[in-house]
Amino acid sequence: MDIILQNIINALQWGSFYAVVSIGYSMVYGVLMLFNFAHGDIFMVGTYIGFGIATLMLALFSAIMPGWMIFILVILVTMFLASFVGVFVEVVGYRPLRGAPRASAAITGLMIGIIFETGNLIILGAQRFSFPALIKSQSYNLGGIYVTNVKVLIIAASLIMMLSLHLFIKKTKWGMAMRAMSYDFLAVPLMGVSINVIAPLTFAIGAGLASVAGILYGQAYPVLDPYMGIQLGWKAFVAAILGGRGSIMGAALAGYLLGFIEMFVPLVFPSTFRDLIAYSIILVILTFRPRGFFGMEHSTQLRL
């Protein structure tokens, strides 16, 4: 029993990263009908920005501010800076190819990803960095189940972020414009909503979320390397497909599901087979539900 409860906590933490990152994929798909394959590397860049800001803030303010205040400050500044990375990717990478075949745009994403990885490698070198601990990790024993304050923070912060995004999309005019764009990105601009505003906005939100995920990731897994975004990015992409293309709640749910499958498979089977079994399960789900959990009819018309 203990082991199951413990793994539920583990899965909630691990699934939070998949959920938040896969939302970035899903949002861009909703608006532009393409998957931004650079998103895993945007996550990586966001993490490194967070690392830089955190190091700077700790050096400047650690004497005069409590840890949680610095933490919030780091999140806000990093989100702001990282959203420009998202805008940059949209303007430089995707805008010139908006009329091009979809495969070209998808490949652009891969190229941008490689540029980010190697650029990082050239600027900072192959050395690994350790993300500074903004919140001192404290482990609590709740009747045999170990929970750390960092875990609780990660799960709570992810849920808050996803909920506020959900409200933003459902309740605000900007959100409405984004939803409209996902129905018809040719007709909506005729109504006076420019795609050149909505698309960068979508990328900025996705990158901002990814960078916060990166800071949280840095608290849980403090070793940074330039290729850290690849595996997480691909798995989050799987979650975005599984949740239904373009569906934000679907992506979030699928992200957590992925986390649960990855945590519970090694419980029953040898851990060597973890990914093999985990992704076979997803293959089976997709065979029976090719549209994913919440995929709408119109969002699957286009291939890729």
Partner: peptide
């Protein structure tokens, strides 16, 4: 686990 994994909590719990 496999190279590049960062979360070992499932294995460690076991």
């Amino acid at each position: 686990f496999t190279t590049k994994d960062t979360d070992f909590s499932s294995q460690l719990t076991k």
